[in-house]
Amino acid sequence: MEKTFMTGNEAIAEAAIQAGCRHFFGYPITPQSEIPEYMSKRLPKMGGVYLQAESEVAAINMLFGAAGTGARVMTSSSSPGISLMQEGISYIAAARLPCVIVNIMRGGPGLGGIQPSQSDYFQATKGGGHGDYHLIVLAPHTLQEAVYLTMNSFDLADKYRNPVMILGDGYMGQMMEPVSFPKLTPRHTPKGWALTGAKDRPANLVKTLYLDPEALEKHNLVINQTIQKIKKEEVQVETYHTDDAEIIIAAYGTVARIAKTAIEVLRNKGLKVGLIRPITVFPFPCKIFEELADRRFLVVEMSFGQMLEDVQLSLGRKASVHFYGRTGVVPSYDEIIVEVEKLVK
């Protein structure tokens, strides 16, 4: 297949277009501005809509409005901007509107920095805004995988009427790598609930307000049943050299690919090291951790330990779990090698 040499941000934008996304609302922020830039170049030429909102708050609400009409829509931002969007994301989840939100993470808290980070894991996987909901959160580790996951994310969002987040980091957004775009036939789910004008049908309503407590609970149960189904059916995880591994590294995204190099070097030295790489960080691949709970674990993240908590929960209290994290800085494979060797000694 023809390969194109692109940045991660461009690859994600193009993948969304290939998946049928024709409407994009966003606001510039480093290190993801190439996504809105790409969209502003491409979408108007194909009859689509690119609109630069006055803020991330407005952008996510434009997404709410556009998703409410049943269109395939996306926004992207980076950590501080995603924080601003949380109100809107909660409303989108509550109204059960399918859409895709890209977070190219940078260091926080506060304004933090513009270097890559994975410190929005809690926010991404535990809901983020107020109320009882979850996003489906996809965490690619290469640009090719970012293309596949982005392309699939729209189908997933439609299928479950649940927003999907692509969780990348600044490194992934800025780096370039060859990618190819497979031919894709989007699975368009019928959207009888969409607001398109009440012609030849009763009026539709996109809402999140349920003043009657029992009605609210009933609505939340529908959301929760969806989440349970997602947990059962949509887990994606990669295992790498885990069969004989005595030590298993758990990592996702860019850190996971760095860990793969560390594992190669360590295996050359005769150490039996493997990797579990959650591709969906929500739903989290608990089962594979349960199955391998007799091994020793090293969780590596670009944070001070967020996915760590999900790994610990999956493994139970008796398991041997160690942690190595950098925040604001990308860990190198040499550092991971040193950490693993410490465990062996």
Binding site: N61, G65, A203, N204, L205, V206, K207, T208, L209
Partner: peptide, 11 residues
């Protein structure tokens, strides 16, 4: 009796 959104405060 028309298609309607209920939106967040101010949005």
């Amino acid at each position: 009796d028309i298609d309607m959104y209920e939106a967040a405060h101010g949005r």
